[in-house]
Each structure stands twice: as structure tokens, then as C-alpha cells.
Amino acid sequence: MTSPNFTSPKSLKTLCKSLRIKDENTFIAAGCTDLLIHLNQQRLYDYKIIDITHLTELKKIQEQNHTVTIGACVTMTELENSPIIARYFPALKDAAYHLGSKQIRNLATLGGNIANASQSADTLPVLFAYEAELEILDSSGRIRLSKVMDTIEGLGKNTLKKDEVILKIYLKKSAALSAFSKIGARSSVTISKLNACIKLDLTESSTILSASIYLGAVGAKPIQAQLIEKALTGRMLEGLRVDSLSPCIKDQIENAIPTRASKHYKKQAALGVMEDALGKIAALYLGASSEKEGTL
């Protein structure tokens, strides 16, 4: 369907053509789960839409030798159900599963969650922890790569130029185990008040070689939890109790939001978020080791 206010490009070439005439009233639409709210709240009526959901290559999850490529229009439901994602990036599967409601997840896309740059975005801590990269197209047809963490400014802002669009997300495959956890006003179908991705490289005996941890909703964009990373490194995952990390978890939140009234709650709540995520990783670790034993 094409009208002066609505284009639905089926090739990158026609997409570039649309991007060339994109102005501040033109919006890129994929899942529309945030866009429609934005249009309603801002009372925007005279807008134009570039619908990118007809670009088939943006809807695929593809595995290469060292990377996995996720199209910008891949939905949360597709991420949640993908064996490739489950195998290499368990935290991303988790984050996709905990985002919004089933109805939202059926429509909401990974590209949209990135570009929308909400401080509560659920996939961002995961993409930060995996140092995901974006493939970005501009109206001239030029493609550039940029890290997700460099593209996100947070609070709804990103560094994409007016004529740019995210095409793909690249994630490096790794043997690390990871998990996502969040808390909101309710236990599900809720916007994160605090979320976290923990990614651990473990030895066979569960010693933590390195940790990459990002916390969301304690700043404009996810922050790296270096204190907690440091506290975890070198310790055994098995038998790890979150109480033993309590002081550094609290310090981490204090450092992130020293002036916010919500810090008192979040300091305590972060213990729960960390325990949940570490518990999930421990379960993955046990699953992985028993699988190994089974093959022996």
C-alpha cells in the first residue's frame, strides 16, 4: 500500500527513497506498540509513516559462524521462541518473554525497543551486556555499524540521524551463560522499575571468569554494574548467596541514583533482581553440565 502519507517499501532501494524525503513528521513503523501511544499522546494527526515490516530480510534471525544476526523487525515472540536465541543468548529470550503482554510481544520488535530508547527498555541491558552492534542504513544507501550502547542516549533519545533506520542487530556468539530479570509494579505485564542482565563466563567447576552486568531503569540508559561484576569475578557460582553481595549491590544502586527518592526501594529490590538472574544462570549451568554428563 502506498499513499502520500504511507509507504511500505519492499526493497532497501525504495526504503532509501522514502528516507530521502523523511521529515520530522515521518515515523518509521514496525510493531507500532510505542508509536501509536506516542502519536496519541502528542496528539499528532498529520504524520507520515514508513512501514518497514514488508522488508523480508528484516524479519529473520540468522546464524553465522561467529555471530547471530537479528532483523530489526523480529518480534519479541519470535525471539522468545527461537532456538538460536535460546542457545546463545538466554538473557535475550528472557527479556523478550518478560516484555509487556502476549499481545504486545506479538507485535513489538527488537529494532523498535532499541530505537524507542526508553529508560525502562527490557532488551537494552542484554544488548549492552553482549555489546551488540547495529547495522544502520541511511537515505543514500550507505550502511554503517554502531554499538547499541553508543546509539542509545535514553529517555526516548537515540543518536540515529533523521534519514537513518536500524536494519539489523549483530550479536557475537559466546559460551557465556546469561539471564535477565526485572521488577515492576506487578509481577508481569509491567514496565520495569529495575531490570538487569547478568552474563557470566564460567569454568567447568562454575568459577566466574568474567562477568558483564547491566542494570536498567536506574538512569537514562542501562549502566554497567562494575562493583557487582568485580565482586563476582573469581567466585564460584555454585553455592553463591546473594546476601554476600548485598553491600556492593546497594552501593551500585546508590552510585547510579544518589539523589532519587526511589533509591531506598531499589537498593533492596536489586537483591531480588540479582538473585533471580543468578538463579536462572545457575539453572542453566546445571542444565548444561548434566547435558554434558549425559553425552559422556
Binding site: I183, S187, V242, Y265, Q268, A269, L271, G272, V273, E275
Partner: peptide, 9 residues
């Protein structure tokens, strides 16, 4: 009651 997150089920 979750004494960490304050969540009540």
C-alpha cells in the same frame, strides 16, 4: 511476601 522486592503474591 518477597522481602527483597516487596512483591506480594
Amino acid at each position: 511476601v518477597d522481602k527483597y522486592t516487596g512483591e506480594v503474591m
